[in-house]
């Protein structure tokens, strides 16, 4: 057949290079945010490279050097953040404790995110009884205080790293489900989704290729904010003795022990608390920024 004259190449808008995309994204980050990004990256590095960064063994006890103030030097070992009630180095324990906080938070965010995305997509795609069942379950879960539920469940199935992740994952998926459901429901009447259904694209392919990529920005925002809550939940469970078990260091457990010595050795609970505060604060501020950037309704 006779072809229509092809459009000249320059009629197409040029494709921005990956570097250009990255540069324009970086340029839109307000200066103050870099501080929080740096803090978050610092904590991530702490968790990843704990053995390299920690000046001492986090579990080795020194009963003669108990509850020494920050900066003390005992037998040639400097305790920058002081030592705890068993003479362990608080700084090293904080560095190793970042591992527990981060890994529990990352894994439970992944688990709850996966459950929530699946539930939300199914509810929006299938409608009918699936929609009612999923969304009523979400309402039910939201009416139960999450920490109370987590405490009871962990108390029943026993504390420990895996159990904490499971419990957090299974209680905190509801926010993802709601966000994904709402967004996907709005996408369903879009012509491209209707077309995909018309040509017989399989439901799973429609959910993965059409719906999920277009709601993923929102999911990332929720995941960032959830990450902060997960760190707090882990600390809370560990504080109550239901989280990561000793002698593995954990910020929550350190604060629990440290609270007995607040008047004599504030640094045992003070420094883990400060780290928790800084980590959650940076994650939430970054999450808020992402939401402002990614949510078209707020533009």
């Amino acid at each position: 057949m006779s072809m229509p004259a092809p459009l000249p190449q320059e009629d197409l808008r040029p494709r921005p290079s990956f570097g250009a995309v990255l540069r324009s994204a970086a340029a839109s980050v307000p200066p103050y945010l870099w501080i929080f990004i740096a803090i978050l990256l610092g904590f991530i590095a702490m968790a990843l490279f704990a053995p390299l960064l920690a000046p001492n063994d986090p579990t080795s006890q020194n009963l003669l050097g108990r509850m020494k103030a920050p900066g003390s030097v005992i037998r040639g070992v400097t305790y920058i953040f002081g030592s705890d009630e068993l003479g362990r180095d608080v700084l090293s324990r904080i560095i190793y404790g970042a591992r527990a906080s981060m890994s529990v938070a990352v894994l439970s965010v992944c688990l709850s995110g996966a459950i929530g995305i699946l539930a939300g997509l199914l509810a929006a795609y299938c409608r009918g009884w699936v929609e009612s069942a999923v969304m009523r379950l979400v309402d039910m879960m939201l009416s139960i205080p999450a920490l109370l539920f987590a405490v009871i469940t962990v108390a029943v199935i026993g504390p420990g790293f895996i159990n904490v992740i499971l419990v957090l994952g299974l209680t905190r998926w509801t926010r993802y489900a709601r966000v994904v459901y709402g967004q996907a429901l709005g996408l369903m009447p879009q012509p491209y989704v209707r077309y995909a259904r018309f040509v017989g694209t399989r439901p799973l392919a429609i959910m993965c290729r059409h719906l999920l990529p277009n709601v993923f920005g929102q999911v990332v925002v929720v995941a960032t904010l959830e990450f902060g809550s997960m760190v707090l939940f882990e600390a809370g469970l560990s504080f109550l003795g239901l989280g990561v078990q000793p002698p593995t260091p954990s910020w929550g457990a350190m604060m629990n022990v440290g609270r007995h010595y607040l008047d004599t050795a504030w640094w045992i609970a003070g420094f883990p608390g400060l780290c928790l505060f800084l980590l959650v604060l940076s994650v939430n501020i970054i999450g808020d920024h992402l939401r402002d950037r990614l949510d078209p309704r707020l533009r």
Partner: peptide
């Protein structure tokens, strides 16, 4: 609204072909 903004043009045009 007729094209999925997250799908390349080739994938969009090929969708009815793959579905069949």
């Amino acid at each position: 609204a007729s094209l999925n903004p997250k799908m390349s043009v080739g994938e969009s045009i090929g969708e009815p072909l793959r579905a069949s």
